[in-house]
Computed example of a mutant assay.
Amino acid sequence: MSDILANRLLPKHFSLIRAVAEYGQLSLAANALALTQPAASRMLADIERHVGAAIFVRTPKGMEPTAIGVALARRAQNLLEEIREAAREVEAIRRGMTGTVRVGAVTGGAVGYVVPAIQTLKAEAEAADIHVDVAPSGALINDLLAGQLDFVLGRIPNGVDARQFSIVGVLSEEVDLLVHQSHPLAYAERLTMADLVHFPWVMQAPGAPVRQALEGVFIEQGAAIPSNIVNTTSLLVMIAMLAASNAIAPMSREVSELLCRHTTGTGLLQLDIELPIAVAPYHLITVAGKRMTPIAARMRELVMSEFDNRRRG
């Protein structure tokens, strides 16, 4: 009997069962499914004939499910969602929106552009296998050339021939100086670099773009470059150092805004400094002539769309 029932009940039957259970009125359920009430009534009669029992009973308040109706309505929700998921998966396969995409990005690019693109891509293709590597540009470019990444948000390092790449977009990067809210300068205004020299710092190693930009501002303002520095590329180490000391850390604007939101609970805030700190722009970089998979090409398109939206905004 169960096999016969399984073969006779169709998705449209389960849609009607769920709709009647949800709305409590056959007329409302029919309207939600774009059916006439007579057609819905005939379909419900067919369902009950297949099942061999009443699915709903009419009461003064409307239509209430029987015990069998409750069971079928509960199953209908899961079944219809599985059908929709199957349809999305088929469409993703048809469009080539399956498989793996590997993206490399500097920290600001990962937070500002890659994460929003991932959210959109996952809405289109849940099964997409997405990998994101966050590292300095030199390491990212090496992995790109080795075929381990589909594209990169980063900079071309000195000594690397840029002609082997396709380079698009000019993604600006601004730097904020972060401290813990208990820092002596946390709420000071219009700070100069001379005000910051004697505090401990935690930042990337010499030669990193953010550090070069910061040192350039110290030099521009005639201030000594800090000597008390902990060098690290780890964001977690930076956050821990800020929480445990009077250290100052330079971070890209995208990361800074993420960490300083009240909802994150980090207790960090941005110093009010007199002059802005701007880093050399980075770009979206692929290996010239390399053909990308549809899923990787879509991810790249979404990253560029996010960049265009920010530029227009």
Rank of each mutant, 00 (worst) to 15 (best):
N228Y: 06
I4E: 15
V237Y: 07
P276L: 02
A125V: 08
F14Y: 15
N7V: 01
G265Q: 04
Q212W: 04
V170W: 01
D46Y: 05
N31E: 14
G267S: 10
Q164V: 12
L149F: 05
N246G: 10
T293H: 02
T293W: 01
A224G: 07
R311T: 11
M193Y: 02
G104R: 01
P294K: 06
L144T: 05
I219C: 13
P136N: 02
Y187E: 03
R253K: 08
I17K: 02
P136E: 07
H131V: 08
T264H: 04
L145Q: 14
A249P: 12
R88V: 00
A67M: 02
L44W: 00
W201L: 12
A249S: 15
R74K: 14
A76V: 01
Q37Y: 03
Y282E: 02
I156M: 02
L35G: 14
A139Y: 14
R190F: 11
K61G: 06
R310I: 00
L258N: 07
L259N: 05
L144C: 03
R190G: 15
G69F: 09
A244E: 12
A67G: 06
I83D: 02
M63W: 13
R49A: 03
A76P: 03
L16H: 06
E174I: 00
L214T: 03
D133I: 09
I295H: 00
A127M: 07
Q221N: 10
A146Q: 05
A125Q: 07
S41C: 09
K61H: 12
I83H: 03
L268P: 11
A297T: 04
A247Q: 09
I277A: 04
V106Q: 07
L214V: 13
A73H: 08
A188T: 05
I17L: 10
G62M: 11
Y187L: 04
I118H: 07
R300M: 13
N231D: 15
A125I: 11
L140D: 13
A117T: 07
A73E: 05
R291E: 15
D272V: 01
P38N: 14
R94F: 04
A73F: 13
A162E: 14
